[in-house]
Design a protein around this nucleic acid. Structure first.
Length: 347
DNA sequence: CGTGTTTGACCGGCGC
DNA sequence: GCGCCGGTCAAACACG
């Protein structure tokens, strides 16, 4: 395609779990991906990088894999998107996701998710850049008019919230992740027949937002992008929300990082297919087959067509990683799961 | 009645 | 400057 829009590009690291995987290997418990190599030629130095870095747009798949305590050698790493290649629209990300969807009934029967992180700075500003008005601004000053708050000083660009996107193979668009969201808008997106829905966390003072849209290339795939960090724990009294109740990530003790959200999503599947993806060509998908061990399966829970996914991964990560978050992470310490930080601070 | 969704209008950045 | 487009607002509406 030539007319590539300039959308945000997700630096995507995509974790995709696919149920079809016949997983016999639990990547998390076994710490390895059962994927075959893909295009790792591009590069990525093995230097470890924190999720923070990742958020900043400098991460690479290998690092990520490392962060996940996966062995790069066995894991599949796809080349990352070039910083300037904005071409990676959601659609591209999903890219061929292929796979087949299958079957999914509204329950998690067939669920396949992917995670991708977006860079917050390196170049990805695009959308968040404009979404400045949101939140804070409006509240107080507003008298002037509804949206017309021009309070923002133009000089300083609004800092973009870290974003984290992941793809989920699901029949339902809005996945239950433990938080309460209120839809505040829906828009048709260019190059996609499917509309994008905008949600905001309903908790007061929490400015976390998320966008949900279906991939036009693979309608069975839903792309969810989280923006910002929750400043509150996962609500426990969710309507039928098993996920939140079942586990409260340790991270949430203080605030809840958005990556968690997706981790939350990543639970409840007997088989996961974790994959890194590179928008380079649609396609991606390498998979790391995983099989949840035990209780997970039992915890699978679906409510109202919403899929609840638990934090299987989170648990796994925690089991393997020591939480060691340095002060300097500041905000990020709330945002970044320890597993991502772990290796990066070697400085 | 409280909460969440729908939906058209508006805002602002960006490219031409 | 204009139009496109993504993102947001908020009134109207739906639902329990």
């Amino acid at each position: 395609m030539s007319d590539e829009p300039k959308q945000l590009f997700y630096q995507d690291l995509v974790l995709n779990y696919n149920q079809q995987a016949t997983g016999e290997s639990n990547m998390f418990s076994e710490k390895h991906f059962s994927t075959s190599a893909y295009d790792s030629s591009q590069t990525f130095d093995p230097s470890y990088m924190s999720f923070t870095e990742c958020l900043q747009g400098s991460m690479n798949y290998n690092s990520l894999a490392s962060s996940f305590s996966l062995s790069p050698s066995s894991s599949k790493v796809f080349s990352s998107i070039e910083a300037n290649q904005k071409g990676s629209e959601l659609g591209d990300i999903v890219g061929g996701g292929g796979g087949g969807g299958g079957g999914g009934s509204e329950t998690l029967a067939t669920l396949n998710s992917s995670i991708s992180s977006s860079s917050t700075e390196a170049g990805a500003e695009e959308d968040s850049g404009k979404s400045k008005k949101d939140g804070h601004v409006k509240g107080e000053g507003g008298e002037n008019s509804k949206k017309g708050n021009k309070d923002k000083k133009k000089g300083e660009k609004k800092q973009k919230e870290p974003r984290f996107a992941f793809m989920t193979k699901s029949e339902v668009d809005h996945l239950e992740d433990g938080y309460r969201w209120r839809k505040y808008g829906q828009k048709a997106v260019k190059n996609s027949p499917y509309p994008r829905s905008y949600y905001r966390c309903t908790t007061q003072k929490c400015t976390v937002k998320k966008r949900v849209e279906r991939s036009f290339q693979d309608p069975t795939t839903v792309v969810t992008t989280y923006e910002g960090q929750h400043n509150h724990p996962v609500p426990t009294s969710l309507r039928g929300n098993a996920a939140s109740g079942m586990f409260t990530p340790m991270f949430t003790t203080s605030t809840t990082p958005f990556p968690q959200d997706l981790l939350l999503h990543m639970h409840n599947h007997n088989h996961h297919n974790l994959m890194f993806h590179n928008n380079n060509n649609n396609n991606i998908q390498q998979s790391m087959n995983t099989t949840t061990t035990n209780a997970d399966a039992g915890s699978i829970y679906s409510h109202n067509n919403n899929i609840n996914i638990n934090n299987y991964l989170l648990q796994q990560f925690n089991n393997h990683q020591n939480i060691n978050i340095p002060q300097e992470y500041g905000l990020l310490q709330d945002v970044v799961p320890s597993m991502f930080l772990n290796k990066s601070n070697h400085n």
